[in-house]
Design a protein around this nucleic acid. Structure first.
Lengths: 362, 362
DNA sequence: CTCATATGTGAGAACGTTCTCGCGACTGTA
DNA sequence: TACAGTCGCGAGAACGTTCTCACATATGAG
């Protein structure tokens, strides 16, 4: 009742007239204790305002019941939802959540992972910022720290992973545009890291139908691949001039890249944006150009953001199950922490095409 | 170089041929050490892949370099931004961040606080879900745990606090509408908890100009107060029928409450929404009613969300400095953790009216 | 030369838990 | 009566650090 300062288990034991071992047993809920002593201890703990010190407990048990998460940016709706999903299952299992931002920069990511590892998290959920080199993540594995990747894979790192089926989702979206009669479809994509030989080479290979190792591609490149596949399937040519590469992960970059192509004679009749941030930049650009959706240009976005449903017209979009992704990742991580021993699993979650009013039939 | 399994400071000491005390000194960066030994220890640590165990360190120092945050819902853009602000200064100071959601429900909040306290966070940032009863928070104070409140105050709890100057901000927004010629202005507000005597009584007192203890009011009530003050200042009557109370904190609730009044003969010519969630619900309702902004109805929102800038028309809004609020809160908390001893401070941050195109001049 | 101060080192306690033993007291079965 | 098994309890080690000592050895001032 009177939680003056911090009481330890020793204080409680003394007050209850038992040994620390017994006090520990009733307070920690392990081993045997008589009803008598249990009651005494509980009463003593109550009156001293005893609160167990998770640090000491963790030090000896080797378990912190804490998950670490390295997200790109909590502020981004994608990560915010994923985190909420992670948080839901963490909380349901009595786990705490240590969260950091990497801003998609590997040095920050390495720093975050180091911090979380020092704090002895039981497991880590990471959205790796570099899909090829990631020594820090390999190290974690070597040391036996459970690890789950979200949204992206890392070459050669065999761990559990959950992501959207980007290729299929993008393909579906673009085919939807083609089915509506669109023939000139622009894609606004981040495409930040050079994929072996740059964009031109990638496009050439993808258009030629060369096999491409798509697992470890960044999401925006996977979505570009889906865009190209849709064209191939529908027998449509891919015009490289319609590949609008923002070059960095910001709405500004997307916004900057749209106006040029819309003014050109080969202007697209429809746009496909590869994620929420690109969508935002594109919408901004379209608003500035005072182009009407879908009269002047149709649009399908990737990732269903709140405003897309009440925007006029409603924005047709490919919805990722963000919350479910976070939940799935956390659940897989908890399984690993419990010691379950499967081969590394990859969960590809399906995205859902939500039709609203931003696509005109030509 | 070969981080097989976890090496302790004892292992490093043995490998370097020194005592654990010396190894601790060089690794922990305290006390004196010779260059010789320092080099040996560092080399040994390197080759063993030594990583300090923050748990053990914290147990003895009594400091975890971890901040706890109890937010309403990470997914909500308001909290997401605030958290990013907190995260920024935490990271800059080498602090970790333990984050939980309360969903604005006190039982969950109590549970979260307990979890974070057990994990021995150095300080806590909370958005209290109940502004009157909060024994758990009083207890924290009694035990000397640094605490900073965001967005709301708690009656009788004298701690540091950062919030938006809600009354002034709302007043400014509504006066802006009045200046544009609007006379019938609706307010869409959460107004979830009964304020001593309910909404009617509150309205009556506020309209009469009775002094109201506004510090511990929930934000939506403060914003309602600002709305009323604007009317008083401008000499306009307040029509209670234009107070649209959602009654719960969800877009659905807001959406549900708008249509009725827009159909009525006394329909408002302008709407003021008291936060992002209310804005979203209102926009949704307006879209369904196919009412045009600002032709059919003008709108000013509270809190600048991403879509408001590229929505057509652009949405005029009162922007809260969310990121800065989070940063300020974290900074204040760190000061307390460092032991600085001011009287409790309240930081009221000014909001900025951003004029775009959603307000018609009548 | 002598004293005070700064520098360097190790032994061992401490932090607050859980864990491992050992021991005794019951129970039920043969 | 004997014996195994369950139950109950305490002493003390352990977890991986930092902290407090005690004790060297230098260094510089008087």
């Amino acid at each position: 009742m009177a939680p003056k300062s911090k009481a330890t288990i020793t204080d409680v034991a003394r007050a209850a007239g038992v040994s620390t071992a017994t006090a520990g047993r009733v307070l920690g809920g392990y081993g045997y204790t008589s009803e008598d002593k249990k009651e005494q201890v509980l009463k003593a703990a109550q009156s001293l305002g005893y609160r167990p010190n998770a640090l000491a407990r963790s030090l000896i048990t080797g378990k912190t019941r804490t998950l670490g998460v390295v997200a790109g940016d909590i502020q981004n709706p994608f990560y915010a939802s994923v985190l909420r999903g992670v948080s839901n299952v963490a909380e349901a299992n009595g786990f705490g959540l240590l969260i950091t931002n990497s801003d998609e920069a590997q040095p920050k990511e390495v720093h975050s992972v180091e911090l979380l590892a020092q704090k002895q998290v039981d497991g880590l959920i990471v959205t790796p910022s570099d899909t090829r080199k990631a020594r820090h993540l390999h190290n974690l594995r070597a040391m036996g720290v459970p690890l789950v990747l979200i949204d992206r894979a890392v070459a050669g790192l065999m761990v559990d992973r959950v992501a959207t089926d980007n290729i299929a989702a993008a393909e579906q979206a673009v085919r939807h545009l083609i089915a509506a009669g669109h023939r000139r479809i622009g894609i606004v994509a981040e495409l930040v890291d050079e994929e072996s030989g740059g964009l031109e080479s990638f496009l050439a290979r993808a258009i030629a139908g060369d096999p491409i190792e798509s697992e470890t591609l960044y999401p925006s490149w996977q979505r570009l691949l889906g865009y190209i596949r849709a064209h191939r399937i529908e027998g449509l040519p891919v015009d490289p001039r319609l590949t609008l590469r923002a070059g960095s992960y910001s709405a500004q970059a997307a916004q900057a890249v749209v106006p040029r192509v819309m003014a050109a004679p080969e202007a697209p009749t429809a746009l496909f944006t590869t994620d929420g941030t690109m969508s935002e930049g594109t919408m901004r650009a379209l608003a500035e150009l005072t182009l009407s959706i879908p009269q002047d240009v149709s649009i399908i976005c990737f990732d269903d953001l709140d405003w897309m449903s009440f925007h006029r017209p409603g924005i047709t979009t490919v919805a990722q199950p963000r919350l479910a992704m976070g939940e799935a990742a956390a659940r897989m991580l908890l399984e690993r922490i419990r010691g379950e021993d499967y081969p590394p699993r990859t969960v590809l979650m399906p995205a859902e095409l939500i039709e609203r009013g931003s696509v005109a039939r030509l």
